[in-house]
Design a protein around this nucleic acid. Sequence first.
DNA 1: GAGTGGTCTAGACCACGTT
DNA 2: ACGTGGTCTAGACCACTCA
Lengths: 260, 260
Amino acid sequence: MSGQRRRPATRVLRSTLASLSRLDPDGLVPLYHRIKEDLTLQIRSGAWRPGQEIPSEVELCRHYGVSRGTLRQAIAELVQQGLISRHQGRGSFVSQPKLEGSVLGSYRQYRKEGAPFDVYAQVLRCERRPMPGEVRRILGTAEDEEVYEVERIRFVQGTPVSLQTSFIAARLCPGLETRDLSGAHLYDVLQREYGTVFLRAEEFVEPALADEYVAEQLQIAVSSPLFLVERHSHTFDDRVGEFRRAHVRGDLYRYRIDLR
Amino acid sequence: MSGQRRRPATRVLRSTLASLSRLDPDGLVPLYHRIKEDLTLQIRSGAWRPGQEIPSEVELCRHYGVSRGTLRQAIAELVQQGLISRHQGRGSFVSQPKLEGSVLGSYRQYRKEGAPFDVYAQVLRCERRPMPGEVRRILGTAEDEEVYEVERIRFVQGTPVSLQTSFIAARLCPGLETRDLSGAHLYDVLQREYGTVFLRAEEFVEPALADEYVAEQLQIAVSSPLFLVERHSHTFDDRVGEFRRAHVRGDLYRYRIDLR
DNA sequence: GAGTGGTCTAGACCACGTT
DNA sequence: ACGTGGTCTAGACCACTCA
């Protein structure tokens, strides 16, 4: 049946969406804003998963009891924020966050339009261990909680481009050491194997020099210029689920930033 | 008279705004999009200057012969792009671009909430000269055109934080060598003295090491990690009017990037 | 053909800032 | 009091996708 692919979203809607009167029984907050908050909650809470279709505009209008213009204003801002994508004639969907894709603004070389990259990772380490104090401050979890520490070298077309160490809360990925982590993106494994999805991340970038270990792994000279990139990735509930530190070759990558 | 402050915008409107029928005599381009393009043109062409008030929504509706909803959709996207800012009860204004402000995402130190920074620049060089070939490729101007080359050290609270060399097309700032360039932002001088405004810029960032010269100027050790930041700043007509190369101390700054 | 999102209209009332 | 932008409605027609 064709209905089966569309109805689920509707059922989710009925059961978990708040009614507007309950959201803020006519305070000063604009309608469209309250709706936006409620829709955001559906996504952040995990009730609506990435890729899933959300109810149509008309359905949502009926549910909230607002006009289409108001509803579209709410949706528009979510689209703007990248949480939702719309397709004329098809429907609206929760966006698939692609954190990996936007790590670095542009490649200096290795840029072949249209040609799919040959990208993979060599796993140096993957072990479950108690959480280092430094990491605990960032992940902000219980004292006795454990993490997986994963160290990988990323290769693009045979060339090592970055050396990354990730700390991932063990509750998000029990048994990670038994999984194949040589794919391009750790996030793919976490989503496929555990349903763990990261919605957003903060990245902090600074320049650094290659020490002996990093230089050897990345096959560059000691003291070569590198990007040191630290990343905090947030799960549904906005907690930090992964802390990552990466050394990225400065001779191969550069950031592009557009200012207005 | 109070009218004098508001009318000019209207007069500009009448004289330079295109009529919709002339923009694209009903092709497939949505109305709001054509309006957006036309408004953008007013700003890019310099007819509407930064800070200036633009005609009210009702006036623009009358001019274009569209409903308020449609017009607001056009304006909304310009606000989103940062070209226009709106203020309830006051009006809508062409944004003041502040390229300097967003150079680096965040400070590692020197961050004192609310306290105004003590920021100034020491001018090492400011001379008019023929354009180097490398720069001509970027500025894309006539072969015999000249540039000003300005080299400055930026200080924040007495500490040197970056060493910058700017190449600015001489047509944009004749007599620049006689001006005081010790203020925080070159862009302020160019706007105040010549009415030259940069609307947007691209920045390319890579990690680098301090050579002897840079190390001495920035009072750091040779081979300290630096950001090397190249910037192309675009004027009204979207031509590149300034090419800048800056070395920024990596121990004081880092970029913050938000990913979704 | 039925359902989706995309565009557009013509009204209304409100919140805010200026005069 | 007046003019600005902010919110909201109830309709209409269109472009696109999919069955």
